[in-house]
Design a binder for these strands. Structure first.
Lengths: 157, 157
DNA sequence: CTTTATCCGACCATATTGATCGGAGATCAT
DNA sequence: ATGATCTCCGATCAATATGGTCGGATAAAG
């Protein structure tokens, strides 16, 4: 239950990769193209391209066209939250359909619905969780280049 | 994003209803049949029946067959968590496919996956959230029978 | 024993997701 | 300046999952 889509999955991987290249110690500021990411993580190229398009459209990354082009983080990794990323791909968080009911839509159960309030509460808690975790926070998990002392704390394996 | 299925939605409504009848002030201990719930909340009868079957199979409710039969909570409302209910209908919580990888399954991205650890962390937080909230906690939201004084507090409308 | 209401399995339609294809626009090299 | 290449971008197709439906089997009440 509560699975996230593959697209969202790919989006997270891609952003993590872009961030780690951009702010890494080896080639800081380098742009990353779609093909590089697709091959690194075995993601279907065209699908990943589409995902990156969406992220670009939603202001998560900047696109640079033409040869030697690619993508760049639009903001710092600290300012991009998981909620924003997932929201860009899958739309706003909503456990139920009635979470963000548009005008003219009706919920058949609404009249006597007995679970709306508590579900909205849960939803809000999840949102806070996702919105408090940033892309930067995700980079500690599986360090590509950062060297950690043997007494490092706060990171579980 | 992170929508729960209609089935799960119906399950929550049904259980809330059963609990409120069973422990309510009017007809305590009464059994509730599928039709009653379906009509009350405008849920397709056959689909709801299926949902209740699953809940019964998973030990959430007891089924009493034959005329005047129906369903009864298998445990007290305080011992049934939201996580259990959702899990019964939609399977175990798992943001990604690799959350509960079975033997012989492979994740193409696994080799260089950079988001597994942080996602599992988020997943665990969500699980605790869902597992700490019980069916009983859900019953305060929209009281059906309880009479409230005009100075009632702690309940939002 | 008949009736009634539930349980239970298999089945179909639709919506969402995963994945793919071909073209448009921009940059670099000549 | 012009062509070639590489990227972005929009529309399209297939697979899967979900929502919803239908029939019979089973067990209890009258």
């Amino acid at each position: 239950m509560l699975k996230i889509s593959k697209k969202a999955d790919y989006a997270l991987m891609a952003l993590q990769h872009i961030a780690s290249v951009q702010f890494g110690d080896i080639t800081p500021g380098r742009v990353v193209n779609t093909k590089e990411i697709a091959e690194e993580y075995n993601i279907p190229l065209e699908l990943l391209a589409k995902v990156l398009q969406i992220l670009s459209k939603n202001g998560m990354i900047e696109s640079h066209n033409g040869p030697k082009g690619g993508y760049l983080l639009a903001r710092s990794a600290r300012q991009i939250t998981i909620a924003q990323i997932l929201g860009s791909i899958e739309g706003p968080l909503g456990l139920t359909d009635c979470s963000h009911e548009k005008e003219g839509e009706f919920c058949m159960q609404r009249e006597h619905c007995n679970i709306r309030t508590p579900l909205l509460k849960i939803q809000d808690s999840i949102y806070q969780l996702l919105n408090n975790m940033t892309l930067e926070d995700m980079m500690g998990g599986t360090p590509l280049i950062t060297i950690q002392s043997s007494t490092a704390q706060g990171v579980e394996r």
